[in-house]
Design a protein around this nucleic acid. Structure first.
Length: 194
DNA sequence: ATGCATGAGGT
DNA sequence: CCTCATGCATA
């Protein structure tokens, strides 16, 4: 069972525009432009659909690219990349990888224009269950989150008890809530209505 | 598309 | 215990 890959590493430099090897500027080197990321994500999705490839297909195909330190990704991650619902850093890290796949896929598509193509498999393994927090409890959690996004372990236990939920469920809920606040769509560039 | 969860690495 | 990247399961 192949575990996850290392969290963040700088091993992603496959196709940067030709810079002058004789000199480089002290600032602005990596593209961390939210605008550019957004544009790329949009174009990526459009191209992917044009190629008739699903998000899951892309995820699996990434593993076949044999790029250094790059394995397969899930449909979830591809979906989140396209909808910018990932952290800024995560978007920046995934962009070069998805770009590499896109170029490869378009090249292959061009070549396959003269032959028949087919590649599909099926699978059916279901297991794990998912806890579902009811609406009333969710509203309470959201209210607590508004006044205290990072409650102490004791406070979490107290909330869990009051809502009749497992402490771990509540803890994880807060963790996930914090992560959501850091997603591109909610972090910066989007001010609350009115 | 999204909710709840896991695991690695950090404090 | 947290953050962060990521994914299974499910709406």
């Amino acid at each position: 069972m192949p575990p996850h890959m290392a969290a963040h590493h700088p091993s992603a430099a496959s196709m940067q525009p030709p810079h002058h090897p004789t000199m480089h500027h002290p600032h602005h080197d990596l593209d961390c432009d939210p605008r550019e990321l957004e544009a790329f994500a949009e174009h990526f999705k459009q191209r992917r659909i044009k190629l008739g490839v699903t998000q899951a297909d892309v995820g699996n195909a990434l593993g076949k690219l044999k790029l250094p330190g790059v394995g397969s990704l899930s449909q979830s991650t591809i979906c989140r990349f396209e909808s910018l619902t990932l952290s800024h850093n995560n978007m920046v890290a995934l962009k070069p990888v998805l770009l590499a796949w896109l170029e490869e896929a378009e090249k292959t598509a061009r070549e396959a224009k003269a032959a028949g193509g087919d590649l599909f498999g099926a699978n059916g393994e279901r297991k794990r269950k998912r806890t579902s927090i009811a609406a009333p409890e969710k509203r309470s959690l959201e209210a607590y989150f508004t006044i205290q996004p990072r409650p102490s372990g004791e406070k979490i236990a107290q909330i869990a008890d009051k809502l009749d939920l497992k402490k771990n469920v509540v803890r994880v809920w807060f963790c996930n809530q914090r992560q959501k606040q850091k997603r591109m769509k909610f972090a910066a560039g989007m001010v609350p209505p009115h």
